[in-house]
Design a protein around this nucleic acid. Structure first.
Lengths: 235, 235
DNA sequence: CGAGCATTCTATGTATACATAGGAGCTTCA
DNA sequence: TGAAGCTCCTATGTATACATAGAATGCTCG
């Protein structure tokens, strides 16, 4: 109606991004970035007006967010962003451990060595990357994403990849809390290297155990970071 | 996923079921029962007319089914019930193994012995149950559900329970294929007993390994059953 | 002054009308 | 006769109007 479909900045992309997709991505991003804080109420009318779509696609977006576990419906009180308690973080890591260990084990069995050899070189350069400020930090997180994707490609199991994606969605909310601890990130890079070496060597057991150690360290760090700043880390 | 929708399973209540909920349950049930076969196209108008709701709640239902992985959207050609190939069954069991082993391990650590002692008695009576025809068969499957619920209660982890629920949803579609093999079901009951004993004893390692064995046997049986009747088991 | 109740208001749940894209089938031309 | 283009048609995507339930609030009565 009042807005036209001419907002396709990328050349060649004739994809008329659906309104429900835009609303979903925006709300999801805002929840993950902490702009929409846990407990915040999501009113359909309010949000649809803010984002610039009607209620119908917004409802579709909220339905997807509920499926993601990022939003919960209250009995007669609309919707709200789900809380992330310390207990739920422990619970999340419990599942994450089961899935990532299994994934690492399988990846060590089915991997394409070349892919992980390339990743190995990049992780070796991680310490230098972390000395480059914010840009290097983002680059480092992208690198972790690449590693996760490589593992996902290696396991080649849509169910497992999907379950991991769900876990990582919630993880993204947690990661904000512990972000920017250089010492921890350097340690994490070392742990990732160990996992990668195990995968390259095809050592399924070592890959699983190295993943276990890494996740335990990660959880410890996250919990410590939360203790340091117990107040909600609202941006 | 774990929806917070108010369940009203109590008798006598008939009215306050939302149309989207009705549509979701009916479609989900029909997919799980094989009435809607894999590859079948779901047309909004057609289905909304059949079920007796308008397109809006039907779309909400389909959105939930997509989140469940039971329905997939085709590029420009509507929606369809997802396929269940032999490969996807193996993939499903791969994830299931990771989750159920972990759950069994945790359950053995946090369980309330009384609950599993009671389940033990019921599983001991399973062979007699299986000799009672269809009614006993249903009772047996209910018993397995009770066991699954008991494990879920013991782990007390919404993320893990949710992930398991997703896996079990797909499992329900597979179970039809191998349904009604008395020998296998008796063996399964024995395997469940072993797991239960391990949980009661608090033997986390044994619980995990017994679960592993059980799932491997289950997968073998399912794959054999599919080989036996390669054609689609449409009812 | 407090408790119970009715009212009102708000936000979701539902239905329907309209816009649009993508494909199937027909027509037409070489 | 075959292929290419066009048209129509169907099914989804979106917007909006209406119904309804639940909660907050204010009013009234004891």
């Amino acid at each position: 109606m009042w807005f036209v479909y001419t907002e396709t900045p990328t050349v060649g992309m004739a994809a008329p991004v659906r309104a429900s997709e835009r609303a979903y991505r925006q709300l999801r991003g805002e929840i993950l970035d902490g702009i929409l804080t846990p407990g915040a109420g999501l009113l359909e009318i309010e949000q649809s007006a803010r984002i610039g779509v009607s209620r119908t696609p917004l409802r579709a977006a909220i339905a997807r967010l509920i499926a993601d576990g990022l939003v919960a419906g209250r009995p007669g009180r609309g919707f709200m962003v789900t809380e992330m308690s310390v207990d739920s973080i422990r619970e999340l890591y419990e599942v994450r451990r089961a899935l990532e260990e299994h994934a690492a084990r399988i990846a060590a069995d089915r991997r394409d060595p070349a892919v992980f050899l390339a990743l190995r070189d990049q992780f070796l350069a991680a310490p230098e990357l972390l000395a480059q400020g914010t840009a290097g930090l983002h680059r480092y997180y992208d690198l972790i994403d690449e590693f996760d994707d490589a593992v996902g490609d290696a396991v080649a199991n849509p169910f497992l990849v999907g379950a991991l994606a769900t876990v990582r969605t919630h993880l993204a909310r947690i990661r904000r809390l512990a972000r920017g601890n250089p010492d921890r990130l350097r340690s994490a890079a070392t742990e990732h290297l160990l996992i990668i070496d195990a995968i390259i060597a095809g050592d399924t057991s070592l890959a699983a155990h190295a993943t276990h150690v890494h996740l335990q360290q990660s959880l410890t760090n996250v919990l410590a970071a939360i203790q340091g700043q117990p107040t909600g880390p609202v941006a």
